[in-house]
């Protein structure tokens, strides 16, 4: 216990056994809902996209360095790991983009009714899947 606030986290069961109280927001007792899951996924996809900028910067810097360096980066992207990263990046980008539009609508005060944010949430999930698959079908057809 290195923090005075932690004293409030300790309690006793009816038989006197000491227990550690659960930390808010009590994720372990709540059933996952579309609202909370998408909110968490918005953060995770944002972090994934931040990591993905490394690939974008590597791609640009290699293109600006030499054709040989560029070929190395293209080779990495065309490898199985590269494909997996690129697929994850596509899905994360579409999800963050679509859920971001949902957030912007909320900022304008729209879509706060329960049926509305449930419907928009599922629309984001479905649209992310459709657009990701569609982009890869187009991409593979071109490649």
């Amino acid at each position: 216990m290195d923090d005075i606030r932690e004293a409030l986290m300790l309690g006793r069961q009816s038989d006197g056994k000491p227990v550690r109280r659960p930390l808010s927001p009590h994720l372990q007792v709540y059933r996952p809902q579309i609202t909370s899951v998408l909110s968490i996924m918005h953060r995770f996809s944002g972090m994934a996209l931040a990591a993905g900028t490394l690939l974008l910067v590597a791609w640009l810097v290699a293109a600006a360095s030499s054709p040989a360096a560029f070929a190395r980066v293209q080779g990495f992207i065309a490898s199985p790991i590269g494909w997996l990263l690129l697929f994850g990046w596509t899905a994360a980008l579409y999800f963050h983009l679509l859920n971001g539009i949902r957030h912007l609508a909320w900022d304008l005060g729209c879509g706060f009714e329960k049926p509305e944010y449930h419907r928009s949430g599922w629309m984001v999930v479905i649209a992310t899947a459709v657009l990701t698959v569609l982009t890869w079908i187009v991409g593979l057809a071109i490649w």
């Binding site: 290699a62 293109a63 030499s66 054709p67 560029f70 070929a71 293209q74 596509t90 980008l93 983009l97 971001g100 539009i101 982009t135 187009v138 991409g139 071109i142 490649w143």
Partner: peptide
């Protein structure tokens, strides 16, 4: 970033497999 990301996806599809030149 909404229109810019969509433009970027289309641009990247256009540049798939492209060489440095």
């Amino acid at each position: 970033l909404v229109p810019l990301s969509l433009w970027f996806i289309v641009a990247m599809l256009h540049l798939l497999g492209a060489g440095q030149p």
